[in-house]
């Protein structure tokens, strides 16, 4: 079995996000970047499939600027066999990413694609689903457990109010939820060895995919700060304020 994982380079989850003063986006200059945590879970899952003998090859794909190669190296250090970097400095929307991944699937013929359920920067939660639709594969989203055997994948999904376990035919697209696994720290010797693993480089044009934007960002603003509360004298005043000021009852 061949497994492909898609990973995105995002602002590190520890960074306090700041909105640009012209409200066109968020500040990314001199900001620490790292692998999207959901994608890290996808890599870990791929590495486990590789280690338990279910998968023969694990490929890590990233779409983004030159520096996305560092994110691919991290995946290689964790245990992926090789990387593919689709280089672009443009902002790529979920549909464009899904189309690029589709083009790579046609080239690489993987049996399973694992990716984060969403990226922590735009929280779109669309790429996996769009990809499954484009290639016409089964999908198992928000996975908290994954078992692969005999051409089928058993996926436990985190849904509102509980868990749902489904069986889907391979090839399939699986998106990861937080509880699927705890990603390992790449060992320092493996980080050094990752330098020797290959990364293929290509571009959206090489793959014949038009990534031009279909959405326009109008404005990005900070969440409004919480206003100070008031202390009410009695229940009657509270009810009155809820009714007439807040208009919630």
């Amino acid at each position: 079995m061949k497994v492909l994982v898609a990973i995105k380079r995002v602002i590190d989850y520890n960074v306090k996000i700041r909105v640009k003063s012209d409200e066109t986006g968020v500040e990314t200059t001199n900001v620490k970047m790292s692998m999207n945590p959901f994608d890290e879970i996808a890599v870990e899952e791929g590495v486990r499939l590789r280690e338990n003998g279910s998968a023969e090859e694990l490929i890590a794909v990233s779409i983004g600027p030159k520096q996305a190669q560092e994110t691919i190296r991290t995946a290689l250090a964790m245990g992926a066999d090789r990387g593919i970097h689709v280089e672009t400095d443009d902002e790529v929307e979920p549909l464009a990413v899904a189309k690029l991944l589709k083009a790579l699937i046609e080239k690489e013929n993987p049996d399973l694609v694992v990716l984060g359920k969403q990226a922590i920067d735009d929280d779109s939660n669309q790429t996996g689903q769009m990809l499954a639709a484009l290639v016409g594969w089964s999908q198992g989203t928000f996975a908290s457990e994954l078992e692969v055997a005999d051409g089928k994948a058993k996926v436990t999904r985190e849904i509102d109010g509980g868990l749902e376990t489904i069986q889907i035919n391979m090839p399939a697209v699986v998106t990861t939820d937080l509880r699927l696994n705890t990603p390992r720290y790449a060992s320092l010797p493996n980080i050094m060895k990752a330098k020797k693993k290959p990364i293929d480089e290509s571009s959206p044009a090489d793959l014949g995919v038009d990534i031009s934007a279909r959405l326009a960002t109008l404005k990005v603003t900070e969440p409004s700060s919480r206003e100070a509360g008031v202390i009410v004298e009695d229940v009657a005043e509270l009810v009155d304020k809820l009714k007439n000021e807040a208009k919630v009852i």
Binding site: E70, T74, Y185, I191, M192
Partner: peptide, 22 residues
Amino acid sequence: ALDTETFSILLDTVERFVAERL
């Protein structure tokens, strides 16, 4: 000396291990 990219991943890993585990 290691190349910048490799060393930066290595240093990030140590930093995370310290912050998250230790």
